[in-house]
């Protein structure tokens, strides 16, 4: 239990998926203009990331490793993630239409989110057990959401701020992201 909590804290703050490992930067910049959409995207990522990590772990251990074809990891995982997102979308549309409407366009967007694939591969590289994989995936999902929400909050204020013309828009957003990344470096000594 203690170990799982440590994994979650490590994934959220110390090895934050966006700010320390630089995965999933595309949605981080793309969906952070409004706080409400950032929260929607974050929720969708937590959900898909956890599910896909568990399934890819099963595929890796019981299919790829058993047959000795570990080199197919990337392509097999992409296959799993793409199929899973489609499947989840269908199930949600049928059973929880409210959640489906709330997540909206962000759900299919996750198919191309490298954070999802990244976490799935990291789980294997660190040879986590099933429960450790679960903790790491949830932690990384929360970490992504946390970074996204903080960033969206800052960007909403940046809209009002007096930014030099040459830096207006994406340049100042990238500088902000870099500063956030540096500030997250402060968590390194936490554990």
């Amino acid at each position: 239990m203690r170990e799982m909590i440590l994994i979650i804290i490590s994934a959220v703050l110390i090895n934050n998926i966006v700010l320390s490992q630089f995965l999933g930067v595309c949605p981080f910049l793309g969906v952070s203009k409004k706080l409400s959409s950032a929260i929607g995207m974050g929720a969708a990522v937590i959900f898909v990331l956890t599910l896909s990590s568990l399934i890819t772990w099963v595929v890796q251990i019981f299919v790829l490793d058993k047959l000795g074809i570990g080199y197919l990891q990337t392509i097999a995982f992409i296959l799993v993630i793409a199929a899973l997102v489609q499947f989840v979308e269908m199930v949600m549309k049928k059973n929880t239409p409210d959640l489906y409407k709330a997540l909206g366009v962000y759900l299919p967007l996750i198919t191309t989110n490298c954070a999802v694939l990244g976490v799935a591969i990291i789980n294997i590289q660190k040879s986590y057990t099933f429960m450790q994989t679960l903790a790491n995936s949830i932690g990384n999902g929360i970490g992504f959401t946390l970074a996204l929400i903080i960033f969206a909050g800052i960007r909403e204020r940046l809209e009002e701020a007096d930014v030099p013309m040459s830096l207006n828009g994406l340049p100042i957003a990238l500088i902000t992201a870099a500063l956030m990344s540096i500030s997250f470096l402060g968590f390194t000594g936490l554990l």
């Binding site: 595929v59 299919v63 790829l64 047959l67 074809i69 197919l72 392509i75 097999a76 296959l79 799993v80 199929a83 489609q86 499947f87 269908m90």
Partner: peptide, 16 residues
């Protein structure tokens, strides 16, 4: 490699 990926793809295809 070929068989396993094909099976994986087929399984996901059928499920979807």
């Amino acid at each position: 490699a070929v068989i396993s990926l094909a099976v994986l793809g087929a399984v996901f295809g059928i499920i979807l």
